[in-house]
Amino acid sequence: MAEFDSLRTGTVGARAAQIDEGLRAYMNKVYGLMSVAMLITGAAAWAIAGLAVTSDATNAVAQIGADKYLTSFGALLYTSPLKWVVMLLPLGLVFLMSGMINRMSAAAAQLFFYVYAVVMGVSISSIFVVFTGASIATTFLVTAIAFASLSLYGYVTKRDLSAMGAFLMMGLIGIIIASLVNLFLQSDGLQFVVSVLGVLIFAGLTAYDTQNIKNTYLQHAANGDQEWLAKSAIMGALNLYLDFINLFMFLLQFLGNRD
């Protein structure tokens, strides 16, 4: 009997160690996918802004600052009706990917994620036109530190964060609607309120999503479906990527210095 108990204990311990190892590999993949997407977004935003703005008045369409002019491409992207497509396309692609993920292969989902990262880069490229490079870098550093702390909390905490998930999602829907309305109202007061709520909501979502990603793996690790786990990691990376981007953009409203 003692030998059986020892064998059973050893088997359970080995299984637990295997799950822990798998969880670490899974989370590393999630953060790795997110990091690559962040690099793609940053590179795309910087490149597009470089094409949209020039210091040469000869080929400029409009002056937007001291020795800073919009090119014809920049005017098309930021001042024509195309700007609405650029602003709203990332939101539409998120819903599209969420709806199609079960019918996509893991490789296709990963490619879609990276294409989405490029689109997001185009969408937020105007920050390089509006804000100084130093303030963008500073805000990015602050966001990275805050995100890492919140994600670590979500990973290690024993507190169940699922209860606040519904509240955060309602808040998210609220700020999306308010942001869309403010595209037409252009109210500074509403923008301030949305920015404050946005920082709080995406801070909470960072911790919540991290815990949810971890729990999702623990609940499904035993089924051994590697394709499903791969797609789950991609969706987890997308969620954390969106948390980071939105946290950064809302913080930029407070910390960014306008050029």
Results as ranks from 00 to 15, higher is better:
F131L: 11
T210Q: 12
F248K: 12
F147W: 00
G165D: 06
L7Y: 14
N223L: 09
D209K: 06
L7C: 01
G174S: 07
I176V: 10
M1W: 11
T71P: 09
A43P: 04
Y114F: 10
Y26C: 07
V12R: 14
L51W: 14
T71N: 06
L247H: 00
L89I: 06
A137D: 12
I173Q: 03
M170W: 08
L190Y: 02
V181G: 03
G32S: 15
A222I: 01
G13A: 10
G32N: 15
F192I: 07
T71S: 10
L200N: 00
W228M: 10
R15P: 06
T139F: 03
A134W: 03
M87E: 07
M170Q: 08
A45G: 07
G236C: 11
I145Q: 03
S135R: 12
F73E: 04
D243I: 01
L190A: 08
T139S: 09
F95N: 11
N239P: 00
A45D: 11
M104H: 10
F113E: 07
V53I: 13
A66V: 11
S80R: 01
L7N: 10
L200A: 07
K158S: 05
V86S: 06
M38K: 09
G189K: 04
A237M: 06
A37P: 09
L252H: 08
G121F: 05
L190R: 01
L77Q: 13
S105I: 04
V85W: 02
I176P: 10
G121N: 12
I19G: 01
F244I: 01
L218S: 09
G204M: 04
A45H: 03
A134M: 11
G165W: 04
D259A: 09
N182W: 04
G174F: 05
S72R: 12
M87C: 02
V30S: 03
S195L: 01
V61E: 13
D56A: 02
Q18E: 15
G154Y: 00
A16R: 13
M27F: 07
L238W: 10
D188E: 13
F4I: 15
A62P: 09
A144H: 01
A166E: 14
A134F: 07
V53H: 06
I127T: 14
R8L: 14
T41W: 05
Q110C: 06
Q253E: 04
F254W: 05
L218C: 12
G42P: 02
T58L: 11
V142P: 00
G50D: 08
L180V: 04
L33P: 02
L252I: 06
V194H: 02
F4N: 09
G256Y: 09
L252N: 03
K68P: 01
G198S: 07
F4A: 15
A66T: 14
F95L: 15
T9Y: 10
M164T: 05
A47I: 04
V30P: 00
S125V: 10
N182I: 01
G198C: 02
E227R: 13
I64V: 15
A109M: 07
G50K: 00
